[in-house]
Design a protein around this nucleic acid. Structure first.
Lengths: 152, 152
DNA sequence: GTAAAGTACATGCCATGGCATCTACTGGGC
DNA sequence: GCCCAGTAGATGCCATGGCATGTACTTTAC
């Protein structure tokens, strides 16, 4: 049997193309409906679901640099969706949490995403489940190995 | 049975996380070994494999704006990897093709990617094949619907 | 043939992210 | 207690991409 290199690159190509187009499409929809973009929705959603969430926690979750997240949180704070509270356990960091309007926004935006995704994901429930299982496994492996994390 | 919205968002989350980390990891490896990044490898590879490739063809393939690709091709040209030849069929556009060193670079970089991916893709050949099949189908559906394509 | 509409792409401005640096704070020796 | 290595994150500089615009060329309608 031939080398699997070809198969690996084909997988990556499909993965990247699907991700780009879905991310762009959701970006567009979120922007027109709620005035935010996907990266902001992801941050808001993580803050909502992560107890005692700090900047570094967000950075780790989305495999972005701490600097970029810090600036992103500045913007979310300026919009009035997020607050930085002093962290009683460590005065170097802040605890992030959503404001009332932030909570409302993330709930609405989540609904918009679910709806748009349901339109776009033109695959069977079985395919969806199987693919999610594989990607989930791959994701855990990459996260465990600290693969692809920026420095800052 | 409950709504599938949750499943859709879970799928997207795993998809985006895998893509980000793999893309970052390949970026790092390509940068240290060949002085290029993934977006450049993708462009070089497309130019190599697409007959009579124009800027707009690249933009369509990677779902990016024409402006961004035009600037990217400027950089590849400045590095001596790509040439713009006048398109005899349409004087508004150019035909893109690789130089000798560009050909060599893309071949080497391709090998680097295959190798690194083989290290990182910690899933069975069956999972790989099944997932590629589903993503490939999804990709065709998104491309057919012109989903998630920037304007420029 | 000519005018109008459309297309290809080059370019400018702006927003965002990476990386390096700086500051403030923490925790571990001693 | 004090010092020093390490950590959290804020900030600056730079590279890249999106979108808007400008220009050259092509196609369509008449």
């Amino acid at each position: 049997m031939a080398s699997t290199g070809q198969a690996h690159l084909g997988f990556l190509d499909d993965l990247v193309r699907c991700e780009t187009r879905l991310y762009n499409a959701l970006n567009d929809r979120l922007r027109e409906r709620h005035g935010i973009v996907m990266s902001q929705f992801e941050a808001l959603h993580l803050i909502r679901t992560s107890p005692r969430c700090r900047v570094a926690d967000l950075a780790g979750a989305v495999a972005a640099g701490v600097g970029a997240i810090s600036k992103g949180v500045d913007r979310l704070e300026a919009k009035g969706w997020v607050r930085r509270l002093p962290n009683p356990a460590d005065r170097r960091s802040s605890l992030l949490l959503l404001t009332e309007t932030g909570e409302q926004l993330v709930a609405d935006a989540r609904h918009t995403c679910e709806q748009r995704l349901a339109e776009l994901l033109d695959i069977t429930p079985e395919e969806l489940a199987a693919t999610t299982r594989t990607l989930s496994k791959l994701r855990r492996s990459l996260e465990a190995g600290q693969v692809g994390v920026p420095v800052g």
